[in-house]
Nucleic acid binder design. Structure first.
Lengths: 209, 209
DNA sequence: TGACAAATGGAGATGACCTCCATATTTTGG
DNA sequence: CCAAAATATGGAGGTCATCTCCATTTGTCA
């Protein structure tokens, strides 16, 4: 799956140029303000070439996203191997915020793509989620973290952080979310913390609280 | 600001029809799959009429969103008036999840619009945020909730929940996030819980954890 | 009722997205 | 090293959603 086709020399070169330029635009946050055709010209290739390599905007995003995710996953594995489980989880989550802070444009772009529901990022997302799942599982096994709330909840929180990147006090609030998540995860509450969503029937049909 | 112009009778009627139809489409989640012109026809008005009333998709969304937010804000105020602060907050947040569960299409649409960064929803969002801020402030004043993490963090978490509505185990995970947030907010941790984001310089320029 | 203002609707201009293929470049085999 | 086969290129042009414009209709007020 990594080397589907040997790919000709010039093709490879163009592909690399496209990804490089894409990362630039991505990071600047202009990914959606730019006509796709213009992007081709910006990268110095014809429209057809761009479309052959990346049939859609999302495909291009996916290519850029891939490297990022790989880096983050590596980091997660490394932390897990060198730190106590709970600390590894905390460090990773705090680090994710730092990462998004540095790559704001990218965070914004990814959030947009996710919300658009294109699903093209599913693969990369799954890899990242797996890393988080592993971190949480290890902490649970250590007994440091409750077992009644899954890693999915943590992913949602991360997603919210990324999507809200343009709020005024973003950094502080993002750190706040992580603090809440980490403290909330710590197994140390009276009883079992809180019973999990058993209020399906509230009598009120509207769904309004 | 509520009654900018008296608006003629037929105009008002058309406007209402448009909003009603929009809510339908919204709730079905088809808001973005539908050509805007076709939406006009669906509502039984001409293209020009649609565009005069709502210059953009976002403007239309905003109109629908407005009522929803008003309802939710009312509910928040009511809870705050009748329950102990902490319980009011908990009930409201749990209720928000229930609300999003019932109105999945709407939640999806809103998340998309938010991420798109149109900013047209800013007003409605602010109203909702104010309600949450009040709930949190009251709980803090009661001493039931920590004061070192703001309401903004809670908003981010909610945002993440809404944006992720299409995950397989959405409901359970969403409830999980709320559980984490509520437990994390409870003032009861050793010391002060966690010092707030003072790790600006990690030495690593890349932002990767 | 008449006249003025407000609103309508749909035909058509605009511009982004994507396809297609004649041409150019790389690779392979003799 | 050369020819022919395979692969890639680029940009002109088709397609389609978005939005504008104005001749006509509808509502309002004296």
């Amino acid at each position: 799956m990594t080397a589907d086709k040997p790919l000709r020399a010039d093709a490879q070169r163009n592909r690399d140029v496209l990804i490089a330029k894409a990362r630039e635009v991505f990071d600047a946050g202009d990914f959606f303000d730019l006509r796709f055709d213009d992007f081709a010209q910006l990268a110095g290739v014809g429209t057809g070439t761009l479309y052959r390599h990346f049939p859609t905007r999302e495909a291009l995003a996916e290519a850029v996203y891939h490297e990022e995710v790989a880096t983050l996953c590596d980091r997660a594995r490394q932390l897990q191997a060198t730190l106590p489980a709970e600390e590894a989880l905390a460090t990773f989550l705090r680090g994710m915020v730092g990462y998004m802070d540095v790559h704001q444009g990218l965070a914004r772009t990814l959030a947009t793509l996710m919300a658009t529901g294109s699903g093209a990022l599913a693969e990369g997302s799954r890899a990242l989620e797996q890393a988080v799942t592993d971190l949480v599982a290890a902490a649970v096994k250590d007994g440091a973290v409750r077992d009644d709330v899954g890693a999915g909840a943590v992913m949602m929180a991360l997603h919210g952080i990324g999507a809200a990147h343009d709020r005024p006090g973003w950094r502080a609030e993002a750190d706040g979310v992580i603090t809440l998540v980490l403290d909330g995860l710590r197994r140390s509450h009276s009883g079992n913390g809180q019973r999990e969503h058993e209020q399906e029937s509230v009598g009120d049909q509207s769904g309004v609280p």
